[in-house]
Amino acid sequence: MNLEPMPLFWLALTLGGYLLSRWLYRRSGRYLLSPLLLVPALLLAVAVPLHTGYAEYASNTHLLMLLLGPATVAFAVPIWQQRGLLARHWPALLLGMLAGSTVAIGSSWWLASALSLDGTVSRSLLPRSITTPFAMPVARDLGGVPELTAVFVMLTGVFGALVGGLLLKWLPLRSSLARGALFGVGAHGAGVARAQEVGGEEGTVAGLVMVLMGLLNLFAAPLLVRVL
């Protein structure tokens, strides 16, 4: 449907839905009301009956996506503040991130070909374990579709935050470092929020590892392109 009389309709709906969902989520603490789930559901519920395409929606809201750039710059603050933690524990964190990245890319690629998924979809699945502002440029480098990757990143976060809690009960993890890394590498943003509920140190480690995973994968992407 043509919404030209209201050029900022989608931007207003996205912002309004976000603020409402954030308020509801903070009040109730119910995961189903998290903006990560509720806002896309709300937008789809309006856009599908109106036959709105992604191009039309994005022409309104690309301004919001532009803010992922300065948000990436802002990641320098937690890296710098946690440099002491990093100096003490970099071998464990680096090895954990290397193991996580290798398993993420290797198992996605192998499973996707075993299930004979389309090449573009498989390539969009590879950077799924890193946070969105990094995952989208990596997907572009690898020949995937950045927007599709954003969807896969979101699903990974939702699933990882749910399953990570169960894994913590079964795995004999003594160090808060391992518990934090599990969430930061496995479920990025959603995982960091979950790790903060487990403990302060876990949350800090998860947040740091999430950013470093993004950087590590971004710098490894050109190498990966040669292998694929």
Binding site: P91, A92, G96, V103, S107, R128, G160, G164, A178, A181
Partner: peptide, 24 residues
Amino acid sequence: ILLVIGSSTLLVMLATALTVEAVC
């Protein structure tokens, strides 16, 4: 797609947590 995301995420979490724990 969900099967790939689910199983791969589980493996990533196992690999990362066990590696960091082993090094510690």
